[in-house]
Design a protein around this nucleic acid. Structure first.
Length: 650
DNA sequence: CAGGGCGACT
DNA sequence: AGTCGCC
């Protein structure tokens, strides 16, 4: 299919595979900045309100919209349309950023697979929650939908129906706990969920049934409306004579591939067909923090330095609150040029001296700023020749390569010593799989201990513990498991690894464990996420489910990878009050760890607990086991994670 | 495109 | 470092 030649995965098959599988939610807050301002000042609730950045109304509330104000309208036009329009300055994003993360955190308290898109949108993969609820509902029950249904026709879509209930619960939580309203879309992939979420606005939700995929794609007025098709891509497609979604759907893949390359061609055409296998990738903490300002003109070095200092002041403060240490600094400018080469930016970046990084973390803001200004000016002169005239319209300062500084990576405990001697992420993965496996069977303490002390993973792997009754459980969702079938012919070995397990790692595991990872029990339990939330008041059928999930997690194997292991340190936060171990760590598994490991973990958690700050509260880390070639995951694994500090560079 | 961010790919 | 994508 993918190559345009007949393969063993025809369209209908892909669709079935895909639709069988996921339930994806897309949340989109109503006129987000305006809502935040109305919360900050309730007097603004009932007046036409616009949020202004420079001379642009970036968004406005619905009162203003009724009077003809639109997003991205110039202030002058808006005042003309609506003289009573009340304006609030919105260049400082602090409050928006904070509430934005509150929303993401709230969604994370339901389910670990939450991906941010800008400040006001989130994707949530609730497939696991849906499967759990579905298992508790009798077959004959016809499940109702919550909210709207796009082009409603048929009625038997139990998973999407449950998804719509979950979406409603989440929206209700966002409203009651944070005070924000928004829309939600429920569908089988991110593309469709996003497209459908806006069909009824504001403060409503919509389900897209699989049978209406063609309808919703057909509704789109142009290719630009397809998320993933930006300005440039739309232009290139137009050059091929493609303007409508239908054009793209029907365009021979070969033609498309010649222009855009094979993978992009396939991706774009899939998008046009409403097919999107991309996973909901947990966003985690931001990978960079930046601050910028635009202006009409800036011509002198004096001004530039003053502006840089101003920007750095707030950026360093944010960086300090984040707690991580930036390793890289970048300065970006935009030059004015009459020749309409208007929108291009130039940048220079360089390493931040360790001492400066320390000062940021420790709170010596003044010193840090002044040293960074020096650095920035150097970078500035690499771009701008000050002996001739210049004219800037924007300056941006950015910290990236953010590293977590854990407490003393001195290395004494068993875990620490393992890590300091094992820099390879792959080994670490295997290690975790093993560690937890060892701990899930009877001789656990012994086995785990020997694994811990043994730096040769392969050694450990020969010493296979007796097979116990396994209840495998992962709190992460699978991603792209069957997806591989559809992309490039199905070259599946007989031993295809389960979702979230790196094929390479999987191959290195002993057969016994491979089998267990492939067992129906394990596969079924993927996605089983134990939510911390109260059962819905009006739904008694869920209550049993809830208490069971929350209090009686089955003891057994957890497949912990370096990635999702790290991921969890954030999720520990909310529930550590009643007992000392984090809420989503199985107490039974924990109790079986060797005492020294327990101690080490405990102190680790204590250190990590206070970190519920706006952007950094989520520790980074992908939900999936990183594929060896996945740059996303590799990049992430170099930063910010609880245990990563134990790695020595190289 | 405005504006102030973010992230990914090349 | 630049381009492209998203809000």
């Amino acid at each position: 299919y993918s190559s345009g030649v007949s393969t063993s995965a025809p369209i209908w098959n892909r669709k079935i595979i895909e639709s069988a599988h996921r339930v994806i939610l897309h949340f989109d807050l109503d006129c987000f900045y305006a809502q935040v301002e109305m919360i900050r000042n309730p007097a603004l609730r009932d007046v036409p309100l616009g949020v202004q950045q420079k001379y642009i109304i970036v968004t406005c509330n619905y009162v203003a919209r009724e009077r003809g104000v639109t997003k991205l309208m110039s202030v002058t036009d808006a005042k003309e349309k609506c003289p009573e329009l009340v304006l609030v300055k919105g260049e400082d994003l602090t409050h928006y950023r904070e509430m934005s993360y509150q929303v993401t955190e709230l969604l994370l308290s339901f389910c670990p697979l939450v991906e941010r898109l800008g400040f006001d949108e989130n994707f949530v993969d609730v497939t696991g929650m849906v499967e759990q609820r579905l298992a508790r509902i009798s077959e004959s029950d016809s499940l109702s939908f919550k909210g709207n249904v796009f082009n409603h026709s048929s009625n038997h879509h139990p998973r999407l129906a449950i998804g719509s209930h979950i979406a409603a619960e989440m929206r209700d939580a966002i409203r009651s706990k944070i005070g924000l309203t928004g829309c939600a879309g429920v569908a089988t992939n991110k593309l469709l969920a996003k497209l459908v979420s806006g069909t009824f606005k504001p403060n409503q939700q919509t389900v897209l049934l699989q049978e209406n995929v063609d309808d919703i794609m057909g509704c789109l007025s142009g290719l630009r409306k397809v998320p993933g098709v930006g300005h440039q891509t739309a232009k290139r497609l137009q050059a091929l004579g493609l303007v409508s979604v239908k054009d793209l759907q029907l365009c021979p893949l070969g033609d498309l591939a010649r222009e855009l390359g094979g993978t992009t061609a396939q991706r774009l055409r899939n998008l046009a067909l409403g097919i999107d296998e991309s996973a909901v990738t947990p966003t985690g903490a931001p990978q960079s923090l930046s601050d910028e300002d635009s202006f009409r003109k800036m011509c002198s070095v004096k001004e530039v330095m003053a502006k840089i200092q101003e920007l750095l002041g707030s950026l360093v403060e944010r960086m300090h609150k984040d707690g991580r240490q930036p390793q890289t600094f970048r300065l970006t400018i935009r030059r004015y040029s009459a020749t309409n080469k208007w929108f291009s930016r130039e940048s220079r970046q360089g390493p931040i001296p360790g001492g400066v990084g320390q000062k940021i973390v420790s709170g010596n803001i003044e010193d840090a700023v002044s040293q960074l200004v020096l650095l920035a000016v150097k970078l500035f002169h690499k771009m701008v020749d000050c002996s001739t005239a210049f004219h800037l319209t924007l300056i941006n300062v950015c910290f990236s390569n953010l590293q977590s500084r854990g407490p003393a990576a001195s290395g004494k405990g068993a875990i620490t010593s393992f890590f300091t001697h094992n820099a390879s992420p792959r080994k670490t993965q295997i290690f975790f799989v093993y560690l937890v496996h060892c701990c899930s069977v009877n001789n656990s303490a012994q086995n785990a201990d020997s694994c811990l002390l043994d730096h040769q993973i392969s050694e450990c792997s020969r010493n296979v513990p007796p097979k116990g009754q396994m209840t495998c459980n992962s709190e992460q969702s699978e991603e792209n498991y069957e997806a591989s079938c559809s992309t490039e012919g199905i070259n599946s070995d007989k031993t295809k690894p389960p979702p979230h397990v790196d094929p390479e790692v999987f191959r290195l595991l002993p057969e016994e464990i491979q089998k267990e990872l492939l067992s129906p029990d394990y596969l079924n339990s993927l996605q089983s996420h134990m939510s911390k939330h109260e059962p819905p008041e009006n739904d008694s059928s869920m209550k049993a489910d809830w208490s069971r999930m929350n209090h009686q997690q089955p003891a057994g194997m957890r497949v912990i990878t370096e990635e999702n292991a790290m991921e969890q340190d954030k999720l520990w936060l909310p529930r550590s009050s009643d007992c000392n171990i984090p809420g989503n760590v199985d107490p039974e598994v924990f109790s079986e760890l060797p005492p020294d490991v327990q101690k080490e973990l405990m102190s680790e958690w204590k250190q990590q607990n206070p970190v519920l700050k706006t952007p950094s509260s989520r520790k980074t880390g992908k939900g999936s086991i990183s594929k060896g070639k996945d740059r996303k995951a590799e990049g992430r694994s170099s930063q910010s994670n609880n245990l990563h500090k134990y790695f020595k560079p190289c």
